[in-house]
């Protein structure tokens, strides 16, 4: 990938393709559904193009996209439909095959355990271990304090250790 311009207008498509996986995975990690992640991915990049802003550097752009993704999933969760949808209710897409969920069920205990964490722990763990973001970066992206992020990471790790007997964390 060649270097992307920090001016959004000049390389929307290139930016989208560069960050699509990141946005999609984060959306998936937060919602646990690839169907929702599909919608959120579209929404994030529509907001990106509409914002048409200039970024200080690539890190700024990445953080912006992460924040928008978090906001989109939050809005999604708070939407009229999802706000009143109990977790116990069957999802309207339950009949359709969700490849990621299938993967979670059949291939990876780690993914399954992660998706079972409360959302705030899940997001922090995901950004820290998958996106290799620092505590400070996560705090900025989530609009919270570093202490909070550390707490979430710590509690998330504890929960994961409970779920995944014998798992080791390098931090």
């Amino acid at each position: 990938m060649t270097e992307l311009s920090l001016r959004t207008r000049e390389s929307f498509d290139a930016v989208m393709r560069k960050y699509a996986d990141m946005v999609y995975r984060l959306a998936y990690a937060r919602t646990g559904s690839t169907f929702d992640a599909d919608d959120i991915l579209q929404e994030v990049f529509l907001r990106y193009i509409r914002a048409d802003k200039t970024y200080n550097d690539e890190e700024h752009r990445k953080a912006w996209l992460i924040r928008i993704t978090v906001n989109c999933t939050r809005s999604f969760a708070a939407s009229a439909y999802n706000r009143h949808r109990d977790l116990s209710e069957p999802d309207e897409n339950a009949g359709a095959e969700d490849p990621a969920l299938k993967a979670a069920e059949t291939k990876s205990d780690v993914m399954k355990a992660l998706l079972e964490l409360p959302e705030k722990y899940r997001t922090a763990i995901y950004l820290f271990y998958y996106e290799d973001m620092s505590v400070a970066q996560i705090a900025k992206s989530l609009g919270t304090t570093e202490t909070n992020v550390k707490t979430r990471l710590s509690r998330g790790r504890d929960m994961l250790k409970e779920k995944l007997k014998g798992v080791e964390f390098d931090v």
Binding site: Y24, D38, Q42, A103, M111
Partner: peptide
């Protein structure tokens, strides 16, 4: 290690190419 396992699991989570084309 957890990190490697997480990467192994999540690397397969990707948007469909046709979805990217649609967004594009």
């Amino acid at each position: 290690m957890f990190k490697e396992q997480l990467h192994t699991s999540f690397d397969s989570i990707k948007p469909a190419p046709e979805l990217l084309d649609r967004i594009s």
